[in-house]
Every structure is written in structure tokens, then in C-alpha cells.
């Protein structure tokens, strides 16, 4: 009797501990993600009843030029964010010296990461200002007339992505600095004995040891690129004329401004699908590493 009661308690407690966090997560996050897919099969204004329309939201997406603009911009975000890991590594190598004031310099390099994206957006709108911004001053210094990057449909996405790259590089730098501190001193020493220098040393001895960190920096950058929204909302609101929207931003506009929640949900589902590719890749690697550890 005593034994069964005890074993029951030993089994029940973990379940009870797991329950609140798990339930909240399942209801608010997992269920919502699935429900987004369900809503994408309907026409819905967000208030009234939903009408089943099957895949016609997706068919409409295919013919919607704005969707292709958003998709192209998502690709630009991904491509430019590929720069974050190498730039982060470069800064990490630069500051990884035991010299006085270097610790303070490191923390100041991290700073963009702590600022909110809204702050970063406001700062860069200021930076890109075509009459007095720093970019304009640089152009004037070379005798050129400065472009209004935020109102040019060619440059606007690049201008926004470069602003977003700033904190992302800081993030990658933190990861690489931590990685550099776990390097195997013996292998480095052996490399030095063999006269490996500079680029060779980095390429053949240091980088192989940083593979795990580089992978995480890359994965986090790709995810960051796909979920970007705040900085677009703050800097351009998707403009001029919708040329800087991405899937996340277009989805927000279609739902909350045009009251086309079904169509918005279809956009969200496409974003979900693209993200799933990256997440599965990440999870498979993570589980493999965990097994082998």
C-alpha cells in the first residue's frame, strides 16, 4: 500500500511539474501555429464566420505580384545575413587580445544587441537621412549627391537589412568570442610549431574547432532574417509602395489593415514552411550531436 502510493507520487509529480508550462506552450504556441494553417483555407474578416475556400488563398498568392516582392525580399534578407557570421568572427578575432581596455571595448561592441529593434530602426532612419544623415555627409565628401535610400524601391530593402545586420553581427561576435576561448591550446601550439601562420592557421586549425559555434551563428542568423518584422515596420512600413515588405510584414498588413485574415494566414503558412526547412536541418544536427556526445 505504502509502496504503490509512493510510486504513484514519484510518477505523478513530474507530470504535474511539466503540465503548466507545457499546456500554456501547446495552447498558445503549437495550437496557434496549426490553427494558422486551418484559417488559411478560409475567407475570414477576423470577426464574422469563416467561409471555407479550400486552396484558393494559395492560388491567389501565386498570382499576387506583392507576394513575389515579399519573397524576393526574404531572399535578400537571407543572403545579406550570411555576412553576419564572418563579420562577427572578424570582430571577435580583433578584440581577442589580453590588453587593458579590451574588456570594455568588447562590451561596447555588444551594445547594438541590447538595443530594441525599434531603437535601431530610429537610429538608422536618422543615419540614412538624405539631407543631413551620415550617409549623405559621406556622399558629399566625395562630391556625389546622396541617394534617398529609404524612398528608392531599388535600395530600400538593402538599407533596412544593413541596419538589421548591425545587432546580428554583434550576436555572432559574442558566440565566436566564446568559441575562441574553448580552443584547444595544444593544437594551436602544435600549429605554431609547424609554422602555420595567419590565414593558414585560421583555415586549417582554428575554424575546424569552431564548427559547432559557426553552425549556431549561421542558424541563428537565418532564423533572424526570416522573422524580421519590427525594423521594417519602424523604418519603412513596407514602403515605398510595398517595395520593402517581406512575408511577415505583408501578412501583418493583409490581416490587420485589409481584414483579409484568411489570405494573411496563407502568407504565414508559406513563411512557416520555409522556416520548417531550417528548423528541421537545425534539429537533425542538434540531435545527432546529442547522440554522439
Amino acid at each position: 500500500m505504502l509502496r504503490t502510493r509512493r510510486s504513484l507520487r514519484h510518477r505523478a509529480t513530474p507530470a504535474l511539474l511539466l503540465a503548466p508550462g507545457l499546456l500554456l506552450f501547446l495552447v498558445v504556441i503549437v495550437f496557434s501555429a496549426l490553427r494558422t494553417f486551418w484559417i488559411s483555407l478560409h475567407a475570414w474578416d477576423g470577426f464574422g464566420p469563416m467561409t471555407w475556400v479550400g486552396l484558393s488563398n494559395y492560388a491567389e498568392l501565386w498570382g499576387d505580384p506583392q507576394f513575389w516582392v515579399s519573397l524576393r525580399n526574404n531572399v535578400i534578407w537571407l543572403a545579406v545575413f550570411l555576412l553576419a557570421p564572418p563579420m562577427g568572427l572578424a570582430i571577435a578575432l580583433l578584440v581577442n587580445q589580453k590588453i587593458r581596455t579590451m574588456r570594455l571595448a568588447k562590451s561596447l561592441f555588444f551594445m547594438p544587441l541590447v538595443l530594441s529593434t525599434v531603437t535601431v530602426g530610429v537610429i538608422f532612419v536618422w543615419f540614412y537621412d538624405p539631407s543631413y544623415g551620415l550617409l549623405a555627409l559621406l556622399f558629399h565628401a566625395f562630391g556625389a549627391s546622396p541617394p534617398a535610400v529609404l524612398s528608392s524601391d531599388t535600395w530600400v530593402t538593402f538599407a533596412v537589412v544593413f541596419a538589421a545586420l548591425w545587432p546580428q553581427v554583434a550576436f555572432c561576435m559574442i558566440l565566436f568570442l566564446a568559441g575562441l576561448n574553448t580552443l584547444d591550446e595544444e593544437i594551436i601550439g602544435a600549429g605554431r610549431v609547424d609554422n602555420a601562420r595567419g590565414w593558414q592557421m585560421l583555415r586549417h586549425i582554428v575554424l575546424p574547432q569552431l564548427r559547432q559555434v559557426a553552425f549556431i551563428a549561421l542558424a541563428i542568423s537565418m532564423i533572424g532574417a526570416l522573422r524580421s518584422f519590427d525594423i521594417i515596420a519602424v523604418m519603412t512600413s513596407g514602403g515605398p509602395f510595398g517595395s520593402s515588405t517581406n512575408l511577415a510584414y505583408q501578412m501583418y498588413q493583409e490581416s490587420l489593415f485589409s481584414y483579409r485574415f484568411g489570405y494573411g494566414a496563407a502568407l504565414a503558412t508559406v513563411l512557416f514552411a520555409i522556416m520548417m526547412v531550417f528548423i528541421v536541418w537545425y534539429l537533425l544536427r542538434l540531435l545527432r550531436d546529442e547522440r554522439s556526445a
Binding site: L22, F25, V28, I29, V30, F31, S32, A33, R35, T36, I39, G46, I223, L226, R227, F229, L247, A248, M251, Y252, S255, F261, G264, A265, A268, T269, L271, F272, M275, M276, F278, I279, Y282, L283, L286, L287
Partner: peptide
């Protein structure tokens, strides 16, 4: 369960927007 926590955490938050707002 562990994989679900990771996947949910990496999702772009916009994916949950419509249902969460409705909820």
C-alpha cells in the same frame, strides 16, 4: 516534446499572430 519546444521557439512570431489575437 523537446523538439517541439525548439521548433516553436524558432518560428517567426508572425505565424501565431492571427490565432493568438483571436484567442
Amino acid at each position: 516534446l523537446f523538439a517541439t519546444f525548439i521548433a516553436g521557439n524558432f518560428m517567426p512570431q508572425q505565424v501565431f499572430m492571427i490565432p493568438v489575437r483571436d484567442l
